[in-house]
Amino acid sequence: MKTLNRCLAGFLCTAALAAGQVQADHGPTTVGGASMLPERSIVDNAVNSADHETLVAAVQAAGLAETLAGEGPFTVFAPVDAAFAALPDGTVQGLLEPQNRDRLRGLLTYHVVPGRLTREELHEAVMERGEAASFATVQGERLTVMPNGNNLMLVDGQGRRANLTLVDVAQANGVIHVIDRVMMP
């Protein structure tokens, strides 16, 4: 109920609330039809999400599964399958080829920020800095978080924008925020 009250107070989750995707304090969040159990790692949970099959395949192809199953903590901005499908034809297939492994690793680690940053912490950082807050990714470049009405959005180095459609999916080694677009370094 606490989470629902925060949403009703206008804290960045209007879209998630409307979609019925806000995690209740009494149970796990469901992502892609699977319960995300907070005692499991990011990878252990992600493999069960029907909405993140492309992301999981990419993480495995890049050799990042062991890292993202590790201690962390990590904040992962996880694009859904539809976000990967919206990339130009052949992009995903090309990235999954063994000769493009470094490029794929760079793309994926651009979606990961060290530490556990909740929606509330992201919002506070934005408010503290004015209109936007920038965070260094594991890849080395920065992602910017900005308000989008009562929600938050990410802006990549090329100006592409992604909405945070589901926030604060607790993991044993971090937190996942589901996004609707693939960010490009």
Rank of each mutant, 00 (worst) to 15 (best):
L4K: 09
L4P: 00
L4H: 05
L4I: 10
N5P: 00
N5K: 00
R6K: 07
R6T: 08
L8M: 12
A9N: 10
F11D: 08
F11K: 06
T14E: 15
A15R: 13
A16F: 02
A19R: 12
G20C: 05
Q21N: 15
Q21P: 04
A24T: 14
A24D: 14
A24Y: 10
H26V: 10
H26W: 13
H26L: 07
T29C: 14
T29S: 15
T30F: 13
T30C: 11
V31F: 13
G32T: 08
G32A: 11
G33S: 05
A34V: 04
A34G: 07
P38W: 10
S41F: 01
S41K: 00
A46S: 12
S49N: 06
A50P: 00
D51S: 15
H52Q: 08
H52Y: 03
E53C: 02
L55Q: 08
V56M: 08
A62N: 06
A62W: 07
G63A: 06
G63I: 07
A65F: 02
E66G: 07
T67K: 13
T67V: 13
G70H: 11
E71P: 07
E71Q: 11
P73R: 05
F74V: 11
V76A: 01
A78P: 14
P79S: 15
V80H: 09
V80S: 10
V80E: 15
A82R: 08
A82K: 12
A83S: 07
F84L: 04
F84Y: 09
A86W: 02
L87Y: 07
P88I: 10
P88Y: 10
T91Y: 10
Q93L: 05
Q93R: 09
L95D: 08
P98H: 09
Q99R: 14
N100D: 13
R101K: 15
R101M: 14
L104F: 14
G106P: 11
L107T: 03
T109D: 02
H111A: 01
V112R: 03
R119S: 02
E120T: 07
H123S: 10
E124L: 07
E124F: 00
M127S: 08
R129T: 09
G130N: 00
A132F: 04
S134V: 12
F135W: 13
A136P: 11
V138F: 05
Q139T: 01
Q139K: 11
G140D: 03
G140S: 01
E141Q: 15
E141N: 14
R142P: 03
L143R: 06
L143A: 06
P147K: 09
G149E: 08
G149I: 05
N150I: 00
M153A: 14
G157I: 03
G159D: 04
R160D: 06
R161P: 01
A162I: 04
A162G: 07
N163Y: 11
N163D: 14
L164E: 14
L164V: 15
T165K: 06
L166C: 15
D168W: 03
V169K: 07
V169Y: 02
V169T: 08
A170L: 02
A170Y: 01
A172V: 06
G174M: 13
V175P: 02
I176Y: 08
H177A: 10
H177S: 12
D180R: 12
R181H: 14
R181W: 04
P185E: 02
